[in-house]
Amino acid sequence: DTCAICRVQVMDACLRCQAENKQEDCVVVWGECNHSFHNCCMSLWVKQNNRCPLCQ
């Protein structure tokens, strides 16, 4: 699966965690819609949006 926000494989660290060298801290979360995201990506997304980027 791919993170619906950053488009990186969810089993890999997101771009932000890769840049900050925090790959082991990058975890996967699932929305109520069952789409998967990196927690970092979702945390930033929900500050500006309240819907899944794929379900909009």
Rank of each mutant, 00 (worst) to 15 (best):
D1F: 04
D1L: 00
T2E: 02
T2M: 06
T2I: 13
T2Y: 14
C3H: 03
C3L: 00
C3F: 00
C3A: 01
A4G: 13
A4H: 06
A4L: 03
I5L: 13
I5C: 06
C6T: 01
C6W: 02
R7K: 13
V8C: 09
Q9M: 10
Q9A: 14
V10T: 13
V10H: 11
V10K: 10
M11L: 09
M11K: 15
M11V: 13
M11N: 12
D12T: 08
D12Y: 08
D12C: 08
A13Q: 15
A13F: 13
C14D: 06
C14Q: 04
C14E: 05
R16C: 14
R16Y: 07
R16P: 08
C17K: 04
Q18K: 09
Q18F: 03
Q18P: 13
Q18A: 10
A19F: 03
A19D: 05
A19I: 10
A19W: 03
E20F: 05
E20I: 07
E20V: 10
E20Q: 15
N21P: 10
N21D: 11
N21K: 13
N21Y: 02
K22G: 09
Q23N: 03
Q23R: 10
Q23M: 09
E24Q: 09
E24W: 01
E24D: 12
E24L: 04
E24I: 06
D25G: 13
D25C: 07
D25I: 07
D25Y: 03
D25R: 04
C26E: 14
C26Q: 15
V27A: 04
V29C: 11
V29E: 13
V29W: 08
W30T: 14
W30D: 13
W30Q: 15
G31H: 11
G31E: 15
E32Q: 10
E32T: 09
E32A: 08
C33T: 00
N34E: 11
N34W: 02
N34L: 10
N34I: 09
N34G: 14
H35Q: 01
H35R: 04
H35W: 00
S36K: 15
S36Y: 07
F37H: 04
F37V: 13
F37Q: 04
F37D: 03
F37S: 03
H38W: 00
H38N: 03
H38Q: 00
N39Q: 13
N39E: 11
C40K: 09
C41I: 02
C41D: 02
M42K: 12
M42P: 01
S43G: 14
S43K: 14
S43Q: 14
L44K: 12
L44G: 10
L44P: 13
L44T: 14
W45R: 12
W45K: 12
W45T: 12
W45N: 08
V46Q: 13
K47H: 05
K47C: 05
K47I: 05
Q48N: 07
Q48C: 06
N49T: 06
N49I: 04
N49R: 10
N49E: 11
N49V: 06
N50K: 15
N50Q: 05
N50R: 11
N50G: 09
N50A: 12
R51Y: 15
R51H: 13
R51V: 09
P53S: 04
P53K: 03
P53E: 04
L54Y: 10
C55E: 03
C55K: 04
C55A: 02
C55N: 03
Q56M: 13
Q56T: 14
Q56K: 14
Q56I: 02
